[in-house]
Design a protein around this nucleic acid. Structure first.
Lengths: 238, 238
DNA sequence: TCGTTATTCTTTGGATCCAAAGTAAAGGTT
DNA sequence: AACCTTTACTTTGGATCCAAAGAATAACGA
């Protein structure tokens, strides 16, 4: 059973359910029954119902025509679309930020991310733990940009579209081949980050947008969207 | 009190609450109490709680730091961002559609929209009822494009970002000046639709995208996002 | 034996109840 | 008189109960 919140001893049903789905406990296409989930999480049906609503909005669950919810299936096509949506929105954020100018604080934050990325690269190779480090770093870089636009509307739009159930790095086997590929991806992503930062600093909005949109594809290009093989299994997505 | 569903006699709490907010019954910034809304809509607190969750996801409500929800305030800046987000996403849809090719069925649907738009224009002026006609027509055109991409991911992304509480046409005073401006807007929008359709038919993806992005601004350019003066009153949006 | 109908069971949606957390107010103390 | 503490009340979150809608199954008729 999932761990409860430290603060009030309450279970975050939404997070738990999201985790169960991304772990594949509830498989894509599977019908989800309130009572079943409730018993599994040791809560009553009520919080589960709330969670279903939220996860439906996130796109993780899907209302069946008749009744109840099923776990949404994502095709490779869906993943591509999600990537493009993300690219479009983050590109928008980048353009806005470039046009409104990067503050000293945000600039420092981005530079910090870049230098930490540099440090990772200088090692010449990756170990498993580095993948998580990079993931955090990457997230920080992107969040800084989106956050710096100051537009909650854009921020929310991105957040709302960021719930595709990709497995996290620790749920798949990381062998040397994977680490090699990840290193290559990291090199490329880092270079792209540098370019984006450059464009942002120079106030080149259109260029920043274009670079960010291209950057969004990196996970696909390097075939290291963890778990893609799993989520891509679905042939039908409607 | 709002009308109940014909089918099962049940009230759509989400739609009702959304309406109440867009009508200004619950003003931006106002704290929303479950019990109060429940009594107003003649339902128990439960469906209201569900609705709060959904509307929070939609961005209409906002969780306060401590407890409860407040009606979200939208600044003019927010509206601009929402428009750009919409443009970015619909632009994406247009590009995809152009690249994958417009089917005969979708082509016919779009042509139908265009000819109906033409008919409206030929009258040389608008009456109040035409505004609603155009709104429907416009919606149909955009939906056809987004729907034709076949990507639910993109469709949902757009739908999720389409909940800003603009007042509908019938909630403001429509005088001759407004009708004139609307006629001008309609001319322009129709022309843009024609161009988008042309680009789509020719498979010119990048052009279709660019045109669609520009088209998104039309409501702002013509200052006829009904109710913008209202929602724009908020100075702070965080 | 197959199809149709009726009955039962499953599952969801809504209402009410209870507990916990947070807020406001009142009273006491310095 | 001002500030702190304690108490009462407001409001939300969770649990349970009840009703209604759907699905499955069984029984009856052709």
């Amino acid at each position: 059973m999932p761990e409860k919140s430290e603060k009030n001893g309450r279970l975050n049903v939404i997070a738990s359910l999201r985790k169960l789905i991304s772990e594949g406990v509830y498989a894509p296409g599977e019908r989800l029954k309130e009572l079943h989930v409730a018993e599994r999480l040791q809560v009553s049906r009520m919080p589960v119902r709330l969670a279903f609503r939220t996860l439906e909005q996130e796109g993780l669950l899907q209302k069946t025509g008749t009744r109840g919810y099923v776990v949404r299936q994502f095709s490779e096509e869906d993943v591509l679309c999600a990537v493009e949506v993300r690219g479009a929105l983050e590109g928008l954020a980048a353009r806005r930020l470039a046009e409104q100018g990067v503050t000293e604080e945000v600039g420092a934050q981005l530079r910090d991310c870049l230098s930490r990325g540099e440090a990772l690269l200088e090692k010449g190779h990756l170990v498993k733990a580095d993948i998580e480090v990079w993931a955090t770093l990457n997230q920080e870089f992107h969040r800084a940009i989106v956050g710096a636009t100051g537009s909650r509307v854009i921020h929310d739009a991105i957040a709302r579209n960021d719930h595709l159930p990709f497995a996290s790095a620790d749920s798949i086997i990381i062998d040397d081949a994977v680490l090699d590929r990840e290193y290559g991806k990291l090199r490329m992503a880092h270079a792209q980050h540098q370019l984006v930062f450059q464009a942002l600093s120079r106030g080149e909005g259109a260029r920043a947008e274009m670079l960010m949109r291209e950057h969004a594809y990196i996970g696909l290009r390097y075939g290291t969207l963890f778990g893609l093989g799993e989520v891509g299994r679905a042939s039908e997505t409607t």
